[in-house]
Design a protein around this nucleic acid. Structure first.
Lengths: 191, 191
DNA sequence: CGTTAACATGAAGGTCGGCTCCGTTTGTCG
DNA sequence: CGACAAACGGAGCCGACCTTCATGTTAACG
């Protein structure tokens, strides 16, 4: 597990790593996962070789972004567990907040929608996310506001659909992710 | 509009055209739109050149399939308009039937999910589908069972999400399109 | 049966995008 | 400052796919 030795990066290398990361975030957000490595390098002001020095593969870059996003999402849901108020409202608000942020980042939508590049890695963030989500929906079910048969998997499924709807909307399809969420959340309420 | 002249195809040509069409349907259903032309040719037992003799472009093949599917879907929804019974039940049953069929065909899922290849063409089928859907949901709304603010666009949005969930499920994601539909349809009901 | 135009074939061409390689530059350390 | 390992750059390699084209085959018709 331990990264043997691992002497600190040279100053310029550390700087470039940050630039690449930022450029990748921007390119992926704007163009989705199919953003090209050369474009990322151009945005970062470096050569493609430098990108590959820091990330052995384009996929590694995608995975790094996915990890970041899953971790932040897990944070958000865990934070929601600390809020007080009607459990359903807390749940719904957390979903709306996370979805609104996600909708602006095409690659994140694609990842949420199940893009293969990031399905396997990201175990840690997913685990936290799954636990926190389970707790959040558990409370909403106890309060009687959420349908009793709802599961974490249902939330994943809905967010998978959400991600794709939002991505398609970015691509010009006449869709509306806010309506999607409205209807899906209503579908999650107890009758 | 009229296809000038258009003398009948030679017998072998007609036969091959059918084989290509059938092979394409199978390949697309199984592998999605990224199915390769060479694979289609192999399944049809012809050379790639023959595929291109009948369809100038891979995209033309995709469009042909999309047209076929949209047209059949429009038929199904129009047929539902002839049924009698509780309007909501008729609507829900039609959606379930169409979705169940769609879920088995990856490319059709992708097209429903808004794949760019087939977004523009297919105007005729879409138009019929849109009209029939509007009528179907109108009745369900009058009966009081469907939320009053539901629109055809909402149905498209939900089916876009559905298509992607089903496609992702095929790709191995731990999702469940039947749960998706259950929840989405509940979200469309009036409260 | 002969002629011919339509048709079939699949190897070669074109393009696109991820990735590599090595000559050059630059930070670091004594 | 000098030396050297670390890092950089970007032209070019490579594989994957769609598409074309020159050559060979076959249905159709007199």
């Amino acid at each position: 597990m331990s990264t043997i030795a691992a002497r600190p990066l040279r100053a310029d290398a550390r700087r470039n790593r940050e630039k690449v990361l930022a450029a990748a975030a921007a390119a992926f957000a704007e163009n989705g996962i199919e953003a090209q490595v050369e474009d990322i390098a151009r945005r970062a002001g470096v050569g493609v070789g430098t990108v590959y020095r820091h990330f052995p593969t384009k996929d590694a870059l995608v995975t790094a972004m996915a990890e970041e996003h899953f971790s932040r999402l897990a944070d958000a849901i865990e934070a929601a567990l600390e809020e007080d108020g009607e459990p359903w409202d807390v749940f719904a608000a957390a979903i709306w907040r996370s979805a609104s942020e996600a909708a602006a980042d095409i690659a994140w939508c694609e990842i949420m929608a199940g893009h293969p590049s990031a399905v396997h890695a990201v175990a840690e963030g997913r685990e936290r996310l799954s636990k926190a989500t389970a707790a959040l929906i558990g409370r909403a079910q106890v309060s009687g506001a959420m349908r009793a048969d709802a599961s974490v998997k249902d939330i994943s499924t809905i967010m998978c659909g959400f991600g794709h709807v939002a991505a398609a909307q970015h691509a010009g399809a006449p869709l509306d992710w806010e309506r999607y969420l409205t209807i899906a959340l209503d579908g999650l309420r107890a009758r």
